[in-house]
Nucleic acid binder design. Structure first.
Lengths: 247, 247
DNA sequence: GAGTGGTCTAGACCACCAG
DNA sequence: TGGTGGTCTAGACCACTCC
């Protein structure tokens, strides 16, 4: 259960930065309970000395953990491991990942895939002139053969090639990563509304049933819009959980 | 429209850190369009020299902006202002704040306030034995005299004293801050469902109308649960927008 | 090769908290 | 008064990108 800083092995020839090596090791120790919740870390100077690092480098490692919510620093007091249990960070994940990790054997049915002239709301999100051709897809998510959600996604045409098989096998985000498209930030809006007749039909639900909806636009490094998604979920079968740290 | 680093005035006697003064000024410049999207910043050395700062301090200012998603740094290339427009960070905010900043003149009606034995779900969220007395409150949010939401919140009894006036004047989170309770992290679950008859009555809506719901548990520094909230919103009047940066 | 950001060092002084 | 984290400096070397 104990933990001593000496057990952190540093590889100075690794391309992985030293501060990151330290941070990773400390994160592991916290996750594994070696550093118990409430435990106080040694002060920065001692830790730095013991690891043969300068204080700024050690501080950077600790700062990384503080940003992620693992530890709290208090001037004059010291640095302590935070007690809260849930640490799932906000991240860009797809419903497919969520379902897969929940062991629900999700299935995807591709309802449509092709090039279309971009509708108004898509043009706005992707910052393209209205009517520009965009790659469009509509998918239905099912678990245990029950439809759970309908996902409509749009991408600028030149960014990605994608097949029915890609979408049914791995999901859009995995395909985008394969193609070197790395989402850097995203804005999503979550809301609710009553299902229209057409929406209800796609979900095997009745008209007026509550839907959870999400619109998301993803951007790359340079702020170029990569993808716009307009999704709706059967309310009884889905929820969104986020963990917020800070402020 | 132009922007020159020289226009950043530093106060070395201020208790506000230099890196933060610089970051704030740059953030303003970006928000105001003085630094246009896509614009390239001067390199770190030049900026540091021009402001009379060391490079690490200048780097820290830029790093702060990069974390917030305002700029992107690319090795060998430079630092550029990101093109996406929406930058609202994920944060712990209350509906009251949201409405106030939207200029909607929100009003709060306190429906109930007192000590009750904690119901099952509250006990679980706050990690208290079932039946423990907890501070309980039920509030209705209105804008333009239309009910928008119903908020039920529960706190351990010994943490906070709160009056009807506190709740109607400033909101629960403001009162908690006054009392020195500083939420450090929170987990929230957002979902949707159809309104029951009782819920519909409180919102002036019909039974079965779609609701957006949120459950939130807030924790302090040490991971103690501070507050549990169970809220529902008229779906037509509310949505949640988050901006995610990273990964 | 020239220019950029990424990392790291070895110091220094300060503000805050506890005893 | 002593210990802690918070800030800041003035350098150094490296990895990467572009020409």
């Amino acid at each position: 259960m104990g933990f001593s800083a000496e057990s952190i092995l540093l590889d100075r020839n690794s391309p992985i930065p030293l501060y990151y090596q330290v941070a990773q090791r400390l994160e592991q120790a916290i996750e594994a309970g070696e550093l118990a919740p409430g435990a106080q870390l040694d002060n920065e100077i001692q830790l730095a000395d013991r690891l043969g690092l300068s204080r700024p480098t050690m501080r950077r490692a600790i700062g990384y953990l503080a940003d992620k919510g693992y530890v709290v620093r208090q001037r004059g007091i010291g640095t302590t491991v935070v007690r809260s249990r849930v640490r799932r960070p906000v991240a860009l994940t797809s419903l497919y990942d969520d379902l897969a990790s929940a062991g629900q054997r999700p299935r995807t049915r591709v309802l449509a895939l092709g090039i279309v002239e971009s509708p108004h709301e898509v043009s706005e999100a992707l910052e393209l002139p209205e009517g520009t051709p965009v790659l469009s897809m509509e998918r239905q998510r099912l678990a245990a053969d029950e439809p759970l959600a309908v996902l409509r996604n749009y991408l600028p045409v030149d960014l990605l090639e994608v097949t029915h098989e890609d979408l049914e096998r791995t999901g859009l985000y995995a395909r985008m990563r394969e193609a070197g498209l790395r989402p850097h930030s995203a804005t999503q809006t979550i809301a609710a509304r009553a299902a229209s007749a057409a929406e209800a039909r796609l979900l095997g639900d009745r008209r007026g049933a509550p839907l959870l909806t999400m619109q998301r636009t993803s951007y790359d490094d340079r702020g170029r819009a990569l993808e716009y998604g307009d999704h709706f979920y059967k309310a009884s079968a889905y929820s969104v959980t986020v963990t917020l740290v800070g402020a």
